[in-house]
Design a binder for these strands. Sequence first.
DNA 1: CCGCGTGGCCTTTTT
DNA 2: GGCCACGCGG
Length: 732
Amino acid sequence: MDVSHLLDDLNEAQREAVSASPGHYLILAGAGSGKTRVLTHRIGWLTQVERVPPWAILAVTFTNKAAGEMRARLDGLIPGGTQGLTVGTFHGIAHRLLRRHWREAGLVEGFQILDSDDQQRLIKRVVAGLGLDEARFPPRQAAWQINQWKDEGKRPDGIEHRDHPVTRTFVEIYKAYEQQCQRAGLVDFAELLLRAHELWLKDPQVLRHYQDRWRYLLIDEFQDTNTLQYAWIRVLAGTTGQAFVVGDDDQAIYGWRGARVENVQQFLNDFPGAKTIRLEQNYRSTSTILNAANAVIARNGGRLGKQLWTDGDEGDRIALYAAYNEQDEARFVIERIREHIAEHGNARDCAILYRSNAQSRNFEEQLIQRNLPYRVYGGLRFFERAEIKDALAYLRLAANRHDDAAFERAVNTPPRGIGDRTLDELRRRARTESSSMWEAALNEVSTGSLAGRAKNAVRAFIGLIDTLQRTFGGHDGGGDEPAALGLAEQIEHAIVHTGLRDFYENDKRGNGEARVENLDELVNVASRFEMTPEDLDAGLNELSAFLSHAALEAGEGQGEAWDDCVQLMTLHSAKGLEFPIVFLVGMEEGLFPSQRSTEEENRLEEERRLAYVGITRARRKLYVSHAESRRMHGTEMLARPSRFLGEIPPELIDELRPRVQVSRPAYADRFAGTSIEEPLPVRLGQRVSHPKFGEGTVVSAEGAGAHMRVQVNFEGEGSKWLVYAYANLTAL
DNA sequence: CCGCGTGGCCTTTTT
DNA sequence: GGCCACGCGG
């Protein structure tokens, strides 16, 4: 068989990876080095040369988008040859596994998935139910902690320091939350992975089955794996599986959400005989851009080491613009974009990348003013919209009465006279009888102490859900059921008969019209929905499959990627993408690197990797900019240029609009962390006294001169930001 | 139950 | 500055 198409057009390192002999491999793939290509061609090689049956291959990605791209490229590469191949996200694969083995995993058959928003609401109610002070145990933080524990594979009984009062309380919240989920048949994202992992550990037969099946494991973005995902791969690989992991330690930017770059190093220890192959030739950027990226990332310690190179052009120098303020910065960027478009370029060639979402506003305002089309990535996705979740809550409730998260959402949206008082009563009853809200409602209607009006309202709601289910043609027992409604009809029916549509139509808050459109779109989406063979295989019904799909794949943000629009996004969302022209904006100390990351070396290095990611997004031309003054959180702040700018070799930079002020130090010295630091009037760690707040310690400072602010951690009062010039602090 | 005023907060994001 | 959660008054 001719397999030349698998190796032609590959460089030597890529070929080595694609055609590697059996064993474990770590592919260190630099930015733009053809990583996806290597992954897909490796799969082609395995199936066509090594004669590995496709069903023995498992390819894991982090996002649905990445999984979809891989599938599409495989289809192009090995036509018809991908039958039975598993490509999916960690969560998607865990989900399928649990559907198939729900009994062994200790779940109910029709379990549903809780998204982060549902999870947080549920935890909030758990915190309230335990009688805890929400100020001392914020639901947000509790959710974060629980997810962190789950990501580390920990159940309440396995948590250390449970004798510490604060930890103990969080463990209690965790326990109570777990019980609620179990009773309601709900599984959150982290739980999907944890359950699947536990299933393997406690059921050797199931594990054996999958170890025997998936002998070839390919993992994308390996540097982003967390503890549990890594454990998952190890268990699944067992002693027979072969792991081919692809990643880049220099692009690890998700440490804050539990990803462990250390896993890359760990892999070499844990997988016997693992070999490392480096992909360093870059096919994306000019050598100028690569040299800048290499120089910046070289400042990080503990790297596995890689040096990007290209045999392409040197290209333009990097343009640096020092703006007066954030508006001047936006004006500069938009002007360059206008010039580009005027020279018959496309708007979509240009990307504006920033550290935090709030920075998009300035650019959006000026883009609107100049009448340029743009698209902001991120933000609310389709299935995360309130009206969509409202509609789905009715379906969830019709499918499973004990889904408290859905009950709470549906019960009074639209308003039907079931207020907080009534709900508190139902919650109290559900808690004491450890039942679902639905059961509590039933009991309350028959034997409860609710006032007449409230009781009627609750009774009407129960009737509404029952009717809904009957109309759907569910499995409600009765002999002569009407023909079952299709998914789209069910949704349409629910939207109309629950009053949701009317409610949003008459919504005077201005966006009602858009919400109704979204509801209509939901019906459209449902009518186009098709179950995958895996869904059918797992024995899912259409509704369950659709609901899972909604939670697992929240859909696109606004707009379509293919329109000719200027692209605006955070540096994090830009990972994996590339653009001919990139504007890296807001390169200022305190913003990028962000204030909170400058105190710890680890976090600073992660910021630096983010800078590396940003620089390497650009194909032809990179602009970097910073503003000397910027409005942040409502106040004008002065900021020094980012240290990362100073880390780019000066000879690669073209400074636009050279500064005329003589009062400022010359170029190199303007950058923080290079040589001159403006002296601070206080030291970090300095003990100070404040007339009102008492004594405390200076923990950080930002800005300069009259605008300088310091953060002081006061005993008893907590930490506060104070404008140094007015704070009247005395050093102790 | 709704609308409005106030106070606190404030990186990054996918599943 | 802007968003969101909460509390009060109609």
